[in-house]
Write a protein that binds this DNA or RNA. Structure first.
Lengths: 342, 342
DNA sequence: TTGAAAGCGCTAACAA
DNA sequence: TTGTTAGCGCTTTCAA
């Protein structure tokens, strides 16, 4: 059977309180007795029981990440960062995946009431004001990644600016007919990116045209940040025939992957016939030789964990609204690089 | 403050034992009192405290997945399946990531001694005989995915057969100079795939040649299942000049991505100059139009969880060594499909 | 500085 | 069928 704190106490000839103090680096213990206890611990191969500690301390040392994980590479790269930093910080990571956005609240409820975790990370997911209040009351901190709520810490990227840069880059290549394939506007990043796109057009005195904007269909595509939505969007744009755009800004790399597929199927070349700039800079972008707006996804995940831990330590911190800046990564798909795909 | 079982008991006018019975669907309670208790629970918005339950039940309702998660898309797709099934089965998933293979044992130790989880999933990772014994003694089940140990349940794919089919497919296209880019042979799948490759050559009376086999370097490439290793491998093969292979079987899709990059940089075309077949069939393969051997990664993850749960329920089950069969997914990279990349 | 004892919130054995 | 009570393995007062 596993050794418990009582076994250690008996072996070391002390009380269990003393053992506890030895384990937890309490100052209220002489180094002499501490050494004695530590020896007993070594001899018995003792390790504290995590659940018992959690119960007594009212602290679980676990954090939860609620992620639409099923949905693709983007989330994985964020989770990598989260995982990395959690391990560094000695926290265990509980991974909850929501496939439908609406189920988020259900997970939040579970999370909150079961008291399994000390803090929650919410990735690309919305949260209602009511839930925010409940979490506040329960004293369980939340940090948002790729999402926003005025009362919560959030880690995002400069979406408007990024979209602006992407579009501007296309404009500089001489394109006039620049389309955008966007995800559903209920997503804040999608909305912001549309805003940036429009602003860039406006600043360049290019008139925004409805026919050049494709927003993925609500019913079918979930939030629209997926390959199929990009494929579908490009299909529609190609149906414009002669009037089709010569360049497209796509609101995510994964959609861009779908768009590229559609373009190739149509027998057109990238970037010669249609130039593309994506958003996110997931690993896939490199393989596809896709120009895109870089998001430091791994770093965002890491920062989210650090912030969560800081907030767990001090609930009264000011709300942090960190926006990473973004920059364009030029590969061959936008027609600006010297190198072309063979 | 949170309602506890005592609050519920008082409110319902019963003992805490009765409340517990109501919660846990015990038969030793009348539906009448049960209803009374449930009402009190609803009124108080009560939810059992997971940690307290764990401690009392000696069961945490959590499982851990130890995964070289940092390493790429392959693992993510398995984790998706694990995550999905865990949620279905009402288990919480703890995600541990090892970046270096050698750290596995450290995580296993932690897992075992902290008693945080009821079972462990080990993905693509080795485990020593000593640890196997320790887990057996501690009564914590382990299931292996993409790995093998004679005394543990394992979920794998027919690696030898898969490699054989892939190579044979290339042979059928008329190729004679067929190379293989493999990962390090300390990985069992890598070893098995090499075996299948050699066997296919032999059966076709093609002499295996050392120069056509590239195995990623130990020091630099970790286990060798990564993009850089594939890139490096293809570079070497291209250095053969006129004597270079006309087809390559690559031991994973992610390596194939690197190989494709090298081929393109060299100014050669796929599949005309060099045909490629990968292994795994991760999502990326589709985007790259890469022919590959399909592994049902999501399904493997799901099955692993189900098996783990079954074994937690009955430790005396026979060891399961499930091998999924694999089939080739023909895309354009191997030169066999009607459709070609524009 | 130390030991004893009272929780932490639950389950389960036991008695009624 | 129910209530009571003794754990589960720790942390943390409170006395000494």
């Amino acid at each position: 059977m596993r050794a418990t704190i009582y076994d250690v106490a008996k072996k070391a000839g002390v009380g269990i309180g003393t053992v506890s103090r030895a384990i937890n680096d309490s100052p209220r213990i002489t180094s002499e007795t501490k050494e004695k206890v530590l020896k007993a611990i070594r001899d018995l191969n003792y390790q504290p029981h995590a659940m018992a500690q959690s119960l007594a301390r009212k602290k679980t040392n676990m954090i939860a990440a609620i992620v639409p994980f099923i949905r693709g590479y983007f989330y994985m790269e964020v989770v990598k960062g989260i995982q990395f930093e959690a391990t560094q910080s000695n926290y265990d990571l509980l991974l909850y995946s929501v496939d439908e956005f609406d189920k988020t609240e259900e997970f939040l409820r579970k999370t909150l009431r079961e008291r399994r975790v000390d803090g929650v990370l919410l990735i690309s997911l919305q949260i209602s004001d009511i839930k925010v209040k409940k979490f506040r009351n329960a004293n369980v901190p939340i940090v948002l990644v790729d999402g926003f709520h005025p009362q919560l810490d959030s880690i995002t990227v400069e979406n408007q600016e990024g979209a602006y840069i992407a579009t501007e880059h296309l404009i500089r290549q001489g394109h006039k007919k620049i389309a955008m394939i966007d995800a559903q506007l209920k997503s804040i990043p999608a909305k912001d990116r549309l805003f940036g796109y429009k602003k860039a057009l406006k600043d360049a005195r290019i008139i925004f045209q409805d026919k050049y904007l494709f927003i993925s269909n609500l019913a079918i595509e979930k939030d629209g940040f997926n390959c199929e939505a990009g494929y579908e969007g490009m299909k529609r744009l190609l149906e414009l025939g002669e009037d089709r755009p010569t360049a497209v800004f796509v609101s995510s790399d994964i959609q861009a992957a779908g768009a590229i597929k559609a373009i190739k199927e149509h027998g057109l070349r990238i970037p010669d016939d249609i130039a593309i700039v994506g958003f996110d800079d997931i690993e896939l972008a490199e393989y596809l030789d896709l120009s895109t707006m870089h998001q430091p996804l791994f770093e965002m995940g890491r920062l989210a964990v650090r912030r969560l831990i800081d907030r767990m330590a001090d609930k009264k911190l000011d709300v942090l609204q960190k926006q990473f800046s973004t920059h364009i990564v030029v590969r061959s798909s936008c027609g600006a690089s010297a190198r072309r795909i063979a």
